[in-house]
Amino acid sequence: MTTTATRELQYREAINEAIRQEMERDETVIIMGEEIAGGAGREHLGIVDAWGGPFRTTVGLIQQFGNQRVLDTPLSEAAFIGAAIGAASTGMRTIAELMFIDFVGVCMDQLLNNAAKMRYMFGGQVTLPFTLLTRIGAGFGSAAQHSESYYSIFSHIPGLKGVVPSDPYTAKGLLTAAIRDDDPVVYFEHKGLYGNTGPVPEEPYELPIGKARTVREGTDITLVGISRMTWVCTAAAEELAKSGINAEVIDLLSISPIDYDHVIDSVKRTHRLVVVDEDTPICSIASEICAMVADEAFDYLDAPPSKVTAPHTPVPYSRVLENNYMPNESRVIKTVQKLFARG
């Protein structure tokens, strides 16, 4: 990877740059979705790119690449996501945007039964270079149908890969890798990260799908964060340091493949684990990582593998409820303190 000419970009700008650079590099890359440009059908009034995406992650693409490669769609997720899979199977490299992960119910069949299974069912005859962009994350008063973080569902489905970038650098590197990947990849953008800034190389670069990274080194406990929860973990770690607990923080970055080895190597040194997951607790990534650590690193543990997650409820609307729904520093700190109180 080259790291020359680094400058600060927002998370949303890093996403936009990755798409733009891959569309420049490879003319078979196309993107489709609802409102990714916006104002479709009003070109005769001089209107183009009216929205640039609901969160402006796709702004400017239609002006650079035209409406044959940047395709605004009717509200028909099953049809256009299925079409993106069909186009990927016949020679295009496709990106489709599902506006919020909560909407996956209307198109899940295409992801579950076609994208995930075609290569296997067909005996390897087909490759599906298909990326699904979608959004997760609570904290915006958007209630239960626009705020969920259902990535664990996709971790569960063989045939799909999944990534959960946490900052502008990982946003660009993982999206570049996802678009170039010959397997279907679900790319989870967190709504709470779009405005965050950070250094991003100007050149295209890939970060490997399936690799976690350590964002804070420590010796006493391993905290694993997923997407925005990584920064809840680092904030908690700074606080814990004041009481003499030196936490290591791992940013998971991929939900399929899961980088178990990175976590287990850390736990073998720290002997304790807390996974912080914004998704609900049952059959979650957090429970999966805890189970694998218990299975493969049992003898190294000084305390039960633990998790801090959302409760087993839908995302509530009222802020007082939503603030209690999301994992926060306080819950992480208290969970860690309990583990140390066991002696």
Binding site: I30, Q68, R69, A78, A79, F80, I81, G82, A83, A84, I85, G86, A87, A88, S89, T90, G91, M92, T94, D109, Q110, N113, N114
Partner: peptide
């Protein structure tokens, strides 16, 4: 009916290329 949009996508490939 799951295969129907796959044909739509294949047709999109044909049109774009």
């Amino acid at each position: 009916a799951a295969s129907i949009p796959l044909a739509v996508g294949a047709a999109l490939t044909s049109k774009l290329k």
